[in-house]
């Protein structure tokens, strides 16, 4: 298994459990949607995988590398995990190009430029290269966030409610587009959402989360793209 999450637990001080023994395994290149209502702990799951919160217990292993266990905790900046935030969190003081290049500072200048161009082509944003995020539409902003997260070639891509900031009519088109881009890069991805339709349109498999527990799983048949 490419991704192995075992009995992950999390609770804030003096509060009920947010996550209670959550386990999940994924194959390489698989897209899993975690579906749940607000407060079900689905965003927390992503933050734990990303290393933004410290779990109360459990293991996370990706590509044979332990990211956290009882003895190990790899810091967020060393994990190599990509994340698209709910409000995209595009750096407002940087252009599209600079945003995408942010995670590539270890590459040489030439390699970096090449990778940025490649990412912008993948997401169809070549002509928006020198724009600032406030000069883009919601859909374009989302693609920049995706390009930025994919650029350093992370081991896994995490998407937190990627459609909550988009108009409904825009959403339909973007869903298929998003799946196509992710599948093209063969990126293992977890997406959390509260919308069943979103989950169905994008994911290979849906995991239902309720009050911090996995309650059900279902596989979605997709026609071969």
């Amino acid at each position: 298994m490419y991704v192995k999450i075992e009995s992950l637990c999390f609770a804030y001080e003096k509060h009920d459990d947010i996550l209670n023994n959550v386990s999940l395994t994924m194959e390489e290149g698989e897209i899993v949607a975690v579906l749940g209502s607000s407060g079900s702990g689905k965003s927390t799951l992503l933050r734990l995988i990303g290393g933004l919160e410290m779990p109360g217990g459990g293991h996370v292993m990706i590509d044979e590398k332990t990211l956290c266990s009882t003895t190990v905790f790899v810091d967020a900046e060393k994990r190599g995990v990509g994340m698209v935030f709910q409000d995209y969190a595009l750096f407002p003081h940087m252009t599209v190009e600079k945003n995408v290049a942010f995670g590539l500072n270890k590459l040489s200048r030439a390699e970096r430029a090449k990778r940025v161009t490649q990412m912008l082509e993948l997401t169809g944003l070549e002509d928006k290269r020198h724009r600032y995020s406030h000069e883009l539409s919601g859909g374009q902003q989302q693609r920049v966030a995706l390009a930025r997260a994919l650029a350093p070639n992370p081991s896994i891509l995490l998407l937190d409610e990627p459609f909550s900031n988009l108009d409904t009519d825009l959403k339909y088109r973007i869903r298929t587009e998003l799946r196509a881009i992710i599948k093209q890069t063969h990126m293992t991805s977890i997406l959390v959402t509260h919308d069943y339709e979103d989950a169905k349109a994008i994911a290979d498999r849906i995991v239902f989360l309720e009050e911090g527990r996995v309650v059900e799983e279902s596989r979605i048949p997709h026609p071969k793209a």
């Binding site: 990303g50 290393g51 933004l52 810091d75 900046e77 994340m83 935030f85 997260a149």
Partner: peptide, 13 residues
């Protein structure tokens, strides 16, 4: 906004 700082860290900064 915390997400800006978290984004930067997840991108390896």
């Amino acid at each position: 906004h915390a997400a800006y700082i978290e984004s930067a860290r997840l991108l390896g900064a």
